[in-house]
Design a protein around this nucleic acid. Structure first.
Length: 299
DNA sequence: AAACTCACCAACCGCAGAGAC
DNA sequence: TGTCTCTGCGGTTGGTGAGTT
């Protein structure tokens, strides 16, 4: 179609009477119209598409609905540990460049990642009474959560990540960026060692993890009740996991993290400085978490 | 059981860049 | 070169369901 024709086909959404345009949640019928039209004609030229498909929606709305909800290659379900790790790392590099981050998480939308960041990460930054962009918070992510996530991924304990077999390379759900950045994260504990390398694979150097026992009951609160809450759905929960029996003897001092960024070699020292409790210590339960975070953040 | 709070997420809004004319 | 339109991005909002009091 010639560009001129395209422009004539495209009706500006503002030119249509506002009363004719639908807003709010999409109906099943609308979804069907959109999906069927895109299946037949492809996506793009959203304003024209909206009109030709018989949808009383703006082109923008159609595009958003397709990209964020109807696209067949969308990945549903919780953000996995490796995806969380990827988000944390890429956000530390690029900031709120959600679409750029999403490009490295196939099946995830920028909206989804943005929502994840705002609801999970920022919430806990608020709880820690520090800014999500502060150095304190970034250090916490870099030196604590990310190694813990790597540990978790390495142990095959990611929520949706299939446990890797010994000596086997596991393809991460998302391709690690290799074009414009160099990323190599690795984390070693006494129990296991794993790394994410630039070829987008998770390598399990040593897999001695036995099937983890169910988490023990959390420590009782002051009133004798348990305030433990964990749906295993995010990195904070990951961090707050009750001790795994196979990690029980692993102290923070034994945790050595090596990163391509030389500054990260300071991690073990920081752990000491921050008074990271041994993994076997009771540090979970909402009250305990708050206390611990407050302590390590020096707040 | 009802009221309230919180978390999640779909959807909208405003803006900026790119391309066509 | 200026204008218009489309597209894409990031920020924000509002609805809904789950959990708590």
């Amino acid at each position: 179609m010639a560009p001129r024709d395209q422009r004539e086909m495209s009706s500006d959404e503002e030119s249509a009477p506002a009363a004719e345009l639908r807003r709010g949640p999409w109906t099943v019928e609308e979804d069907l119209l959109l999906v069927n039209y895109i299946a037949a004609h492809g996506e793009g030229r959203w304003n024209a598409l909206a009109r030709c498909a018989g949808l009383r929606r703006t082109g923008k709305s159609c595009r958003l609905r397709w990209l964020n909800y109807l696209r067949p290659d969308l990945r549903r379900g919780n953000i996995t540990a490796s995806e969380q790790l990827m988000i944390l790392e890429l956000h530390s590099r690029w900031g709120n460049r959600w679409s750029k981050i999403a490009q490295h998480l196939p099946g995830r939308t920028d909206n989804e990642i943005k929502n994840y960041w705002r609801t999970r990460v920022q919430k806990h930054a608020r709880q820690l009474n520090c800014d999500v962009n502060s150095q304190q918070f970034k250090d916490l992510m870099r030196y604590l959560w990310m190694p813990r996530l790597l540990e978790r991924i390495g142990a095959g304990a990611g929520e949706d990540d299939a446990p890797p077999q010994a000596g086997q390379q596991q393809q991460l759900p998302a391709a690690w960026p290799v074009d414009d950045v160099e990323v190599e994260l690795s984390c070693t504990t006494a129990a296991s060692s794993s790394s994410v390398s630039t070829d987008g694979t998770l390598q399990q150097q040593q897999q001695q993890i036995v099937s983890p026992a169910p988490p023990p009951a959390p420590a009782a609160g002051g009133d004798g009740s348990y305030s433990y809450s964990n749906n295993n759905s995010n990195m904070w929960d990951t961090l707050c996991q009750p001790p795994r029996t196979d990690y029980h003897a692993t102290t923070a001092a034994e945790t050595a993290c090596s990163w391509s960024d030389e500054s990260l070699l300071l991690a073990p020292c920081l752990y000491g400085d921050m008074g990271l409790p041994e993994l076997g210590e009771t540090m979970w339960g909402a009250a305990a978490d708050d206390l611990w975070y407050t302590q390590i953040m020096g707040l």
